[in-house]
């Protein structure tokens, strides 16, 4: 075989190889910081100490920030994802994404009795330091990212957020509903707080707890009647919840980022702790639809009413694109 024909033989595989690498090597880098925050409950002016992920400001904030769930991260199916983490807390922090493959490097400590114990699922950012995490060839679906260090404490302290990879062909619009809880009793002294006596009193969707008498949070998918809407459910809390869409049935299509071979029609889903579920809903009537926890996490600091409740706003057809979206409501119209 002469040189030319050898090159000819190699050309196509080389081109394919280049094409493959150009896809596989597409990557995105996200920069987060783990910081102390404050969350003001709807019934109280006394803020609760939280830990949270925020977009990395480049240096540690000088004062506690207003807490929210971690920023929504997006990724492309098959691409690589890198998260750079700056740790502004007083103890080591890390990030894991259940359901996405990467090589973890567990961190251990030796306790007072000489026993080696795992402290973190993977490498950590020391207080004041940084760390970097990469997931290759990430898979499509809805996922949670959360602290992998002392997760029994750090997750309920607020170190969690959502990752959305790719899109479903069935729906162009989507909403994400991130469920979580707060037990204020464990947040007064977070350095020692453990969840053995976890008894949450605030029940949140997307970082907000509805409180009776206040405007109800509206999740706006900018969607209109007779169009498919993807509802992504994620539970970063420590308890199971049962979200119910009041009225219609949804079609549940995926769980933990895995497509069901056959979709399931349900009006409610069991959303266990740490789980994600994806549902398609095609509203046939415009209006306001309530979505709430049928496990009755519908109180706020013990007061009846409130808790895990949002409205989904479905526009009539034709919906004028520039109509200001409704951001809160008072009652079903």
């Amino acid at each position: 075989m002469n040189r030319t024909s050898l090159l000819k033989c190699l050309r196509i595989p080389v081109l394919l190889l280049v094409a493959f690498f150009s896809v596989a090597s597409s990557s995105s880098a996200l920069n987060l910081a783990a910081v102390e925050g404050r969350w003001t409950p709807p019934d109280s002016a006394v803020p609760i100490t939280m830990w949270g992920f925020i977009p990395d400001p480049g240096s540690c904030p000088g004062a506690p920030v207003a807490w929210n769930v971690g920023p929504l991260q997006t990724g492309t199916s098959g691409a690589n994802l890198t998260i750079n983490l700056r740790n502004c807390l007083s103890e080591p922090v890390s990030i894991v994404i259940p359901g996405q493959n990467t090589i973890l490097t567990p961190q251990t400590i030796t306790d007072g009795q000489g026993r080696v114990r795992v402290r973190a699922f993977t490498n950590e950012a020391a207080p004041g330091g940084t760390a970097s995490y990469t997931w290759n060839n990430i898979k499509a679906g809805t996922f949670l990212y959360q602290s992998g260090s002392n997760p029994a404490k750090q997750v309920h302290m607020g170190l969690y957020g959502s990752l959305v990879v790719g899109k479903y062909s069935e729906a162009t619009k989507d909403v994400l509903l991130l469920f979580s809880e707060i037990d204020p009793a464990l947040h007064g002294t977070p350095a020692s707080a453990t969840p053995l006596n976890y008894k949450p009193k605030y029940f949140l969707i997307n970082g907000k707890a509805y409180s009776s008498g206040q405007p109800i949070p509206v999740v706006n998918g900018n969607t209109q009647v007779n169009k498919n809407l993807l509802i992504r459910f994620a539970n970063a809390g420590l308890m199971s919840h049962t979200p119910v869409l009041q009225g219609p049935h949804m079609t549940i299509i995926a769980e933990d980022g895995n497509r069901y071979p056959y979709a399931r029609k349900q009006y409610s889903v069991l959303l266990a702790a740490g789980k994600t579920l994806d549902a398609i809903w095609r509203p046939v009537k415009s209006g306001t639809y309530a979505l709430y926890d049928r496990s009755l996490s519908l109180s706020s600091n013990g007061a009846p009413g409130g808790g895990m409740l949002v409205y989904l706003d479905i526009k009539p057809f034709p919906w004028v694109l520039f109509t200001a979206p409704i951001t809160s409501g008072g009652a079903i119209r």
Partner: peptide, 22 residues
């Protein structure tokens, strides 16, 4: 409330607005 049903409110007994229904 009636999960899984498309409910309307009869005009004769409209009730008063609530969080999940009339």
């Amino acid at each position: 409330v009636f999960p899984g049903q498309q409910v309307t409110i009869a005009s004769a007994d409209p009730g008063v607005p609530g969080i999940l229904t009339k």
